[in-house]
Structure formats: C-alpha cells, structure tokens
Design a protein around this nucleic acid. Sequence first.
DNA 1: GCCAACGTTGGC
DNA 2: GCCAACGTTGGC
Length: 136
Amino acid sequence: MPQYWLMKSEPFKYSWDDLVAETEGVWDGVRNHSAKLNLRAMGVGDQCFFYHSREGLEIVGICEVSVAGILDPTDETGKWAAVKVKPMRKLAKPVSLKQIKAEPKLADCELVRLSRLSVAKITPEEWQVICDMAEG
DNA sequence: GCCAACGTTGGC
DNA sequence: GCCAACGTTGGC
C-alpha cells in the first residue's frame, strides 16, 4: 500500500512545471533531519503532493516516487537522502494553505503543525480530503 | 522585507 | 551537556 507525502519547493527554484519538463526529477537538497527521515521512509509508488512554498502557497500537483532511498547527489558528505519522482497529474484546482488551515480535518497534519518541515507525511484520510478539495 | 519558529553551532 | 547566538525556512 502506498504512503502519502507532501514535498515543498520554492517555485522560483524548482516548480511543478520544471518537474513536468524534466519528466523525472531528483528530490535533493533536503538538509533537515526530520525531512530526511521522511525521505528515507519513502518507497517506490508512494504518492506525493507537490507544494509551492514562499510563492503560491498551494498544492499544485501529484507526483509519484519512482526511485527510493538514494543518496543526495548534491551532498558531498553522503549523509543526506533523496528520491526520484515523476509527475502524475496536476490538480484540477490547486489547494491553498489557507484552505488547508480552514479545514478542521487537516488541522493536525504535519504541514500545518510543522510549517518548516519540507517533506511532510500525509495520512490516507488527509490525502483523500485534499483530493476532494482539489476537485471541488 | 520582516519576523517567528526551529535547527545547529560553539563557548563554557 | 547546557544554552546563547546565529542561520535558515517559510508564512505573512
């Protein structure tokens, strides 16, 4: 059974469109231990929301882990983890942070509780709630 | 651009 | 091993 995640990226550094253009992207540059543990816990086929931070502040698309458990190629120490992801689909309607905060069912999600965590875990229930919001 | 939250570093 | 200082992240 796949797990669910949310990955943040600043769109002016690496946006959803950049990932789509690349077809497959390496999710590297994470330098936070909690985020690293989440990256290490990912498996091939896991589903990830692609969230735009700093600008946009919304979930824009869904991608899937295509390669799990690799070392961060941008890290010379060999201590940091990375995964590869492939874009799956763009959301019909982006789900903004504002909407997420306004939804009681999402009040406890890692994205809201740990706002600075760049790779957050999403429960299946939360995933479903956000997917419903993206279609509404 | 500001600032709060949080992680890391380094002096003791 | 504690904690103050500092740097970074990310919402506003």
